[in-house]
Write a protein that binds this DNA or RNA. Structure first.
Lengths: 341, 341
DNA sequence: GTGAAAGCGCTAACAA
DNA sequence: TTGTTAGCGCTTTCAC
């Protein structure tokens, strides 16, 4: 037996209950304008008594303001985006803006759909992962007239503002560090990269920098789906069967790297002397491992935080603000899987 | 240079562009009512040409319908809720409902706030984790008059419908299995449980069932914060220093369990003969480990899926439907850390 | 098959 | 400090 019969309460109900005009009730509930302490308390008491919950739909329509920020990301199930979200939440907690999340599953068509859905709620801003979007998506974003921040990746042309790292450069830096440490027979294991542009850019930067040192990737393999940890084990076993003389494996993310690390330790292989390893992302998980996998911090928290701050700033000062570009500097953490460190 | 000057487009703009009345434009855009193919195409073309995105705020206010389902959960950063969300999304994908997520951080006051915010958007339904809520929260839920499904836990009195497992029983079952396998000196490691009711219930069921077998928990420790994997290592080391003769450790979640498992393997301890281990949740991660930790599937995906299905069914048939209770049966996976299995 | 009028519940702007 | 009036952009209802 739920209370279904009674229509939702309105301002009018509070007004009648308190004997104060709707307008003044509205002011009290929003802490807007001057209201006498007496009236204020009478209204608050009445609202509480009848259990009034404001209708934001009506409020948003009337005020033409929605305190929502659309956040559009590919996934929530790996470790990377939750941390971005934390940064966004922390920044927005200081404002009256609220994040609303949409998930694209790395599919451009889904992104377009989610974006359309989100924009139809007229949010105050949009944060979206990546810098590659369909023409239709870009058009929607531009036409929306609201602040847009693309995050994670700065290698490309943003619609408006952008906060991220250069994944191409991240790949290069890792390659340089590997070469510098004297590794020569280098393998790469990663996700299928048709839709993961950031992984692709890292790989491109990686091979480029190796080429500069006269080295070619000795072997490589790509996966999709499944438990990353398990995939890391399998692929590591595979690649070493195929190419036993590898002395370094670069993984496109930390989870498959950890899978590989655990497998190699089990096999009694000397890490980092016989084989060196590195991943990417700087996930917190690594801290609890027997050996800490070398990795590169992707600045996820900061990216989220700064993106949200840009939105918040734009919302405050309605006037024309120039698009911002923030390029963060990821740093290598050599952990215990890198020779000479 | 963003296009800020031009106000967002309205139905009226599409109407003018296409030479069709606002009303008919509205019908086309919603696929409602009979519209001639000619008119339909003319409208669609016009909408696309000028880049119109409907205003759902206005639509929702006018129609008194919002295709949103509020999902309120404690956290997104562990492995459990993302999987619940996947179940919810999968179920809602077959409807025109959309999930909107709010995060409480396990804090009742935050839950109350988030719930209030969410309800003020007048969603079509609410799914919220746990069955313990403040009186104010319960009152809001009841007063909202919309379908409510509490998830994860069935040990208590729901506001409306509920889908979950009995955590008390889960703890009992694990205790029984441990006793049956002949373990005698049993330790417990878990989170501080003041606010994590489900962990508390598992612990209560666990100690209860042990008591029935004449066994008391030999040692225990609780943590909060930090990397679960690292905490699992530390606490495992600690508890064995204090109580070296333990022959089983029950962890309140898989992540700290894995930390413990990796630590003990490093120490050369024979698992499961010298010490047996078990966690809780059945996270996918376990598959990639050298030894698979014993665990108990918490039916997370199914819980999400069924909860969403209940909401969807309720939204369809407006008429009074009885509150549903669905109690799922978790199963033990003995993995490689349980003697005699 | 199409259009005109009314109003969803709230807030901006102005009046008192 | 408080109240009144007029919409916000759409959908419902009813008329054509």
């Amino acid at each position: 037996m739920t209370a279904k019969d009674n229509r939702p309460l309105t301002l009018r109900d509070v007004s009648e209950e308190s004997g104060v005009s709707e307008m003044t009730v509205s002011r009290v509930l929003r802490n807007r304008g001057d209201v006498s302490a007496t009236t204020r308390e009478r209204v608050l008491a009445a609202a509480k008594r009848i259990g009034y919950v404001p209708n934001k739909i009506a409020g948003a329509l009337a005020s033409q303001r929605v305190n929502l920020v659309a956040v559009i990301i590919p996934s929530m199930s790996n470790m990377v985006f939750p941390e971005v979200m934390t940064g966004i939440s922390d920044a927005l907690d200081e404002t009256d803006l609220q994040p609303v999340v949409g998930i694209t599953g790395y599919q451009p068509e889904k992104e377009e759909k989610v974006l359309y859905e989100m924009l139809s709620w007229r949010p105050s801003g949009v944060i979206l992962a990546g810098i590659e979007h369909s023409d239709a998506s870009r058009a929607m974003l531009r036409a929306s007239g609201i602040p847009v921040v693309e995050i994670m990746d700065v290698d490309g042309t943003p619609v408006d503002s952008v906060v991220g790292i250069s994944h191409r450069r991240a790949g290069q830096q890792m390659a340089e560090a590997i070469v510098e440490s004297g590794y020569k027979r280098i393998g790469f294991l990663g996700t299928k990269m048709l839709l993961d542009h950031r992984a692709r850019k890292r790989f491109e930067g990686f091979t480029q920098a190796l080429a500069k040192a006269g080295i070619e990737v000795a072997d490589q393999e790509f996966y999709s789906g499944g438990s990353a940890l398990a995939k890391g084990r399998e692929m590591t076993a595979d690649i070493l069967k195929r190419t036993p003389d590898l002395d370094f494996i670069y993984y496109s993310n930390d989870m498959i790297g950890v899978g590989g690390l655990l497998y190699l330790q089990e096999q009694g292989i000397d890490i980092p002397n016989q084989i060196g390893l590195a991943g990417f992302n700087g996930v917190n998980l690594l801290k609890g491992l027997p050996k800490r996998l070398a990795t590169m911090d992707a600045c996820r928290y900061d990216i989220g935080k700064q993106a949200a701050e840009i939105i918040a700033a734009r919302v405050d000062q309605e006037d024309e603000v120039e698009p911002t570009t923030v390029m963060l500097e990821p740093t290598i953490d050599f952990g215990d899987t890198f020779r000479n460190h």
